[in-house]
Design a protein around this nucleic acid. Structure first.
Length: 444
RNA sequence: CGGGCUAUAGCGCAGUCUGGUAGCGCGUUCGUCUGGGGGACGAGAGGUCGUGAGUUCAAAUCUCGCUAGCCCGACCA
């Protein structure tokens, strides 16, 4: 993409409404534009990141055996009457009437809708287990939206719903979600810690929130340092294997890790002092096994082999996709701007032409651009006529991990320069005919 | 939902107290120069001062209403 042909409305000054880094940087780098309180348009750069995160989530959910669907944003209120949540939800739920006077709502979540789908078709234990998920816009009419996309009213969320014949199978679904989420966060370049969450009236041990450590986070967190050293790494996961998943989940849920909601000071103080960590975190996901809460009230039942009819065991599992964009920036930025992890960066690399009037620099920049595109890289070419400083600053701001710098000085010596956004290091690369050295460096 | 604050050019702000020609920086347009960290000079364009009423010879400025947005708290993925 030639920058001169793109739509990248960068702001030089800080918008007055943005208080925290991610919000400020998303506005400045032209990723989003506020439409009204807590509601945003996603501009090209922001949309690219949002879609990259979404794709990683989809890949990992499919790898875990879960099935994508898409449910509507607008739901009929009748379903919520059935589950008895219509009144419980209060003013957070945006309600309105259609032209026939039927009460509708903009969905804040989809348990009712998905349970309705399931009960319409599934009647036998032979059809279970199944997990359906979708990634869709949701709306919660927060009294006080803030922090940009981290606490908007409209938000993009992955929510998955598991349907199982019994508790053992439902817990396996829970474990699949735990592990597929851990893998997702790792691929996003984030350290997210599963923390024991409040299960409310249902009780039990089967709810975890995933928190990204950041001092702007809204939750107070307490954990054993050991848990932050755990990672799935490259290990292959067999999502069908009950005991294998169980042992991984056991490993990740044994060390103490809780938010202030479930914090137990006595347990916390049993951890050796050197390993106790207190901090703040941003919640980027939650998994929850809740048994027959909705299947019971909404009549989603199956026949067993022995002819008995029982309500389906369910769980719901969510990842805040749009919120993750903010969380990623909170975790990856410096004074100059955003520093994208390669997996979610809106572009793989940017070519900065330092002398836009120079024939040689132009020729070489264009050649690199075409060559990289042909090799499958998504490259931004900063071909603006702006001064060098303006180019460097704005490219640092938008945070592309690798900057390929083409300037008269290097070109005259037959060299290109790559600057790495994360550590500021620069290396020289010979300017060869096939650019193989450059391509290899970008593949790293 | 309680408490506080703001609204003036695309963005950031001054002007409001003490009513009288609407201003600054950045950006933007044109031209010349410049070209390894938001460059220089020159010339332009751009505002019914959030909105409605009132006071006044005269309102960005004073009064009242409304709307929108932000901050603290309660709440929340």
């Amino acid at each position: 993409m030639y920058l001169s042909k793109y739509f990248l409305p960068i702001l030089k000054e800080n918008p007055s409404e943005a208080q925290i880094a991610s919000h400020r940087l998303m506005l400045r780098s032209g990723m989003i534009k506020q439409s009204s309180a807590g509601i945003y348009s996603w501009l090209p750069l922001g949309l690219k990141v949002l879609k990259k995160i979404e794709n990683i989530i989809i890949e990992e959910q499919i790898a875990a055996g879960h099935i994508p669907i898409l449910m509507p944003t607008i739901q009929p209120a009748e379903l919520w009457k059935e589950s008895k949540r219509l009144d419980d939800y209060g003013k957070e739920m945006l309600r309105f009437e259609d032209r026939h006077g039927r009460l509708m709502l903009y969905g804040p979540t989809n348990e009712e809708l998905v349970t309705d789908i399931f009960r319409s078709y599934i009647t036998s234990y032979k059809d279970l287990p199944k997990t359906l998920f979708h990634i869709q816009w949701k709306f919660r009419d927060e009294v006080r939206p803030r922090f940009g996309v981290m606490r908007g009213r409209e938000f993009f969320m992955k929510d998955g719903y598991s349907f199982d014949v019994d508790k053992r199978s439902a817990i396996h679904a829970y474990n699949r979600h735990m592990i597929s989420y851990l893998r997702t966060y790792e691929r996003l370049g984030l350290k997210a810690i599963p923390m024991k969450a409040d299960t409310g009236p249902i009780g039990g041990d089967y709810s975890h929130e995933f928190l990204v450590l950041a001092n702007t986070g809204e939750s107070q967190v307490f954990y054993d340092k050991e848990i932050s050293n755990l990672s799935l790494g490259e290990q292959k996961i067999d999502y069908e294997n009950y005991s294998n998943l169980e042992s991984i989940v056991h490993k990740f849920t044994t060390p103490y890790a809780r938010t202030d909601e479930t914090h137990d000071i006595d347990l916390f103080e049993k951890i050796p002092e050197a390993r106790r960590v207190e901090g703040r975190g941003i919640e980027v996901g939650q998994i929850f096994y809740f048994g027959t809460k909705y299947s019971e009230s909404m009549g989603a039942k199956i026949d067993l082999a022995n002819g008995k009819r029982i309500p389906i065991e369910m769980g719901s599992h969510g990842i805040g996709v749009s919120r993750l964009v903010g969380a990623l920036i909170e975790a990856n930025h410096d004074e100059q701007g955003i520093i994208w992890p390669a997996s979610v960066s809106p572009f793989d690399a940017v070519i900065i032409n330092l002398k836009q009037n120079d024939h040689l620099c132009n020729e070489i920049s264009i050649k690199i651009y075409n060559m990289l595109k042909a090799n499958g890289f998504d490259v931004l070419y900063d071909d603006r006529l702006d001064s060098v400083g303006a180019k460097f600053s704005s490219m640092d701001l938008i945070g592309i991990p690798k900057q390929i710098i083409v300037g008269p000085r290097g070109v005259s010596e037959g060299l290109l320069e790559i600057k790495f956004r994360n550590n500021g290091q620069r290396i020289n690369i010979p300017l060869s005919n096939n650019l193989i050295e450059l391509i290899n460096e970008l593949k790293k």
